[in-house]
Design a binder for these strands. Structure first.
Lengths: 214, 214, 214, 214
DNA sequence: TATGAATGAGCATTCATTCAT
DNA sequence: AATGAATGAATGCTCATTCAT
């Protein structure tokens, strides 16, 4: 997914040296696991499925990761960074409404291009975030507070309409992720002749423009 | 095997005769299953958990329902009706903006009072609706089309601002269900001193007012 | 092995009610496990072996005991009581030498009739008593101290020859258990025409008579 | 595969040529294997544990020995020689009681200095000597018969008290090995302030003196 | 209706050993 | 002489479901 190279959970230590084949297999496993976990959830996924999808034998897969859970955790750790990146880019010095709209667009784009990651995340949330709670109350909370303060300031300064900054963020998350997480429903209703994401882009642009207009 | 003749979604079959104890146990099972399925997903839930939560032995539970899957399907069937009820009540003859806002409020209220149902539904969607696709493309689609037409008319007649009626419905779904489905995340960010649903009520009222204002 | 009915490890609580079939199967499992564990050790034994020896399927065995380890622990708990019984009967008011010789005989008889128990115990000791250390430092130590004091008194009062009471007890254990634990070796050396236990009886009687004679 | 031509107990084969590093690694492996096998038994030990303890990779370890079992067998073969050495030194021409006591002391000293070897041997005996039976019925039996005959002669000649020579040997084995094999138990009972082996020395000296006194 | 007993299929993980380099 | 990579065969345990009563 990204070439930043995953840490081993310690977050600190020296980068683990990996041979080319290790790198390749680890990536294949994570890619396969993303596919399987996002579709079936943690418990619903089997190591066999993942191994097969990665083109490895089950014991060989467990040569690269110590356990099924370790793969899941690795995915979630990497995911959170990816997930928060668009929000991180919200620039306190930029034009308020443009910044918020741009953020929404980046987030919608992520739903479009990374729907499996979105579903993996949603799965974890639905189950009460058993493996992610710490991350939520750490990085995520800090970032949300930071950006909410920025938005609140914009709101106070009259640069955008008055609006609860936290719930504005929630709204962006909810509205964009919905198109990934509830894709079946959206497609069932719209039928095959619609392009949900392009319509969503238009609709959400309107929505946030009206919501934030002074 | 399934001599209880449970209504299977067709809505036709003869009314199943049930003693009071049967009724009570079926309800206990469905209540328990809702709890367990919504928390752990279908594969993550075990019949044992459900039986224990229902206060029954495992074989006795399977006397009432032929299989784990049958319980799940029964829950989903019932759920869809509950889920669509608020939308059904959207009155074509009512005041457009008031109707839409009232619908949103009913939906948010459902997220507040029935979060387990919301998560059960979300779980099913995330997995591609393997057990619900027909219902989506049947009742749900029909209802959505029907109500979208109403909203489109309102929009055309200038009674509300121009808006894509389908995506308006999606927005209501996404924004209200988010507070049930991503509750951990919302609470992790807001902390213990907030009342997410009451704040959401205010925020969403504002949001839809601005979106729909002529 | 004995009809006292095993506790479930809590040591306290009410006696677990068991149906006849439960009683029968539990006993079959423990008997089979004794056979297998004493021969192959804990790690060397497989649940499959035990199940087969007990005439049960693997999952059915695990219906009666939660894990392989639980069976092992149950065996060891029961065993310690059996194991200490002969020493418990050492009567402080009896004739000193006769009491000690009688104890030795009871212990030797146990090696003869319960060699598997002896080997199970020896196996556990060899590995450092990972599952029995507490029992050793509890019941066993207390009993040994108690009886060592009795023997020390006899020794002090000149009723038996001066002797270290603890090491006298160890000597009885070592000498009697040897015929069970090292049975292959004893038989390899003596050949098929000897009766090790009857010879041991004579030899050990002589040994302790000479050791303890005033 | 096994081109190193390890002496396989027959004692005949050509002397294996080994480089210094080979020699060093073989020794490291055997040392590590002794540690691990004596603690966990054959089945309980893993090749990984041994390799790690020896500071080698698993495949490299298997370059030196064709299999886990081969290491075990090698250990046992070497062990038997070590084990019997003290008895071999029993001098038919020496002073009978002094010889027997000296043998007992050598054996006790071995328990003190080589407890792992003692436990390895005990483990093998407990399991019925599956890998050692031939050795028992060969070298061991011959030596035991030889020395038993010596003791029997001494006994017949009145140089020591009348005693069954085989069971006298067993007694020495049992009493000395007990302090290595059942060390946990001994220490659990005596507590930390005792020196089991030094006390055993005193006790066993007394015991055999009284047993053998004319 | 209800439950104790039983099981086949499956699952995550371990492990001795082999392969390729 | 050494090791990273790979695997077949277990191994302990779980689970939905069935059987017998």
């Amino acid at each position: 997914m990204d070439q930043t190279g995953e840490e081993d959970g310690t977050g600190a230590g020296s980068a683990p040296r990996r041979t080319r084949i290790q790198q390749k297999n680890r990536e294949a496993i994570l890619e396969a696991a993303l596919e399987v976990f996002s579709q079936h959830g943690f418990r619903g996924a089997t190591v066999d499925q993942i191994a097969q999808a990665a083109g490895l034998s089950k014991p060989n897969l467990l040569y690269y990761f110590p356990s099924k859970e370790a793969i899941h955790i690795e995915l979630l750790s990497t995911l959170l960074d990816t997930w928060l990146a668009p929000l991180r880019r919200l620039d306190p010095e930029g034009d308020p409404k443009a910044e918020i709209l741009a953020y929404m667009h980046r987030k919608l784009e992520m739903s479009r291009t990374l729907p499996r990651e979105s579903r993996l995340f949603a799965n974890e949330m639905l189950q009460g975030a058993p493996r992610m709670k710490d991350m939520l109350e750490g990085d995520l909370k800090a970032l949300a507070q930071d950006k909410a303060a920025v938005i609140a300031r914009w709101s106070d300064e009259g640069k955008i309409a008055a609006v609860d900054p936290y719930h504005l963020i929630f709204a962006i998350w909810a509205l964009t992720q919905h198109y990934a997480d509830f894709e079946v429903q959206v497609r069932a209703i719209l039928g095959p002749d619609h392009d949900p994401f392009s319509e969503a882009d238009t609709f959400l642009t309107t929505l946030f423009n009206r919501l934030l207009a002074r």
